[in-house]
């Protein structure tokens, strides 16, 4: 009887080990956490609904008071039409402006001529869920909605590296090593 039980325990242990292996495989893919954001039209949008029909997405955290963030979004904006044509990428810009400056986000975006999808995260809920320390912080999402790459800060020329990553994701290739 004891032997049978021991066998059962062994089998369970084995199955647990096995399930852990598959769990680890799953753990490698990090999905976008589910948080409610505010659209420019006032409506709530849940981040788990972000999708781009299997094509890559960039989620960029920014604020109207963050100079490098604006540099980054300007640099992408200059190339956005070409990038969209070549890879189908979609850029989603998350403003972490709070009530002090959130009212100017819409006018600011239009004033810059940006054509990104814009959402507000006025109390930093999405920022916290995505483990963002400081903006700018950009995430690259693959066609399955998994976060595959991230980068903090911006310096002129960083957009080139980002685009290399986007191209790799769009083509389903492994990400190039950051040079």
């Amino acid at each position: 009887m004891t032997k049978k039980l021991m066998l059962a325990v062994a089998a369970l242990l084995f199955s647990m080990l096995f399930s852990n292996v598959s769990a680890q495989d799953n753990a490698k893919s990090r999905k976008i956490p589910s948080v409610d954001l505010k659209g420019l039209d006032g409506g709530k949008v849940n981040t788990s609904t972000f999708s781009n029909n299997g094509k890559p997405m960039v989620i960029s955290f920014w604020a109207t008071w963050c100079k490098p963030c604006i540099e980054e979004l300007n640099a992408i904006s200059e190339n956005y039409i070409d990038w969209q044509k070549e890879t189908g990428v979609k850029v989603i810009a998350i403003s972490i402006d709070d009530a002090k400056t959130s009212a100017r986000v819409g006018t600011f975006v239009n004033g810059k001529g940006w054509t990104y999808e814009i959402y507000g995260d006025p109390n930093g809920d999405f920022k916290r869920a995505m483990n963002v320390n400081n903006p700018p912080h950009a995430f690259l999402i693959n066609g399955n909605g998994e976060i595959v790459w991230q980068h903090v800060g911006f310096a002129e020329g960083n957009e080139k590296e980002l685009y290399e990553m986007i191209k790799a994701v769009a083509a389903g290739k492994p990400l190039p090593e950051s040079k």
Partner: peptide, 14 residues
């Protein structure tokens, strides 16, 4: 607290 914004591409006022 009140806010009024008007904006279109290339122009915005708050």
């Amino acid at each position: 607290l009140v806010n009024a914004n008007y904006s279109k591409k290339g122009f915005g006022i708050t």
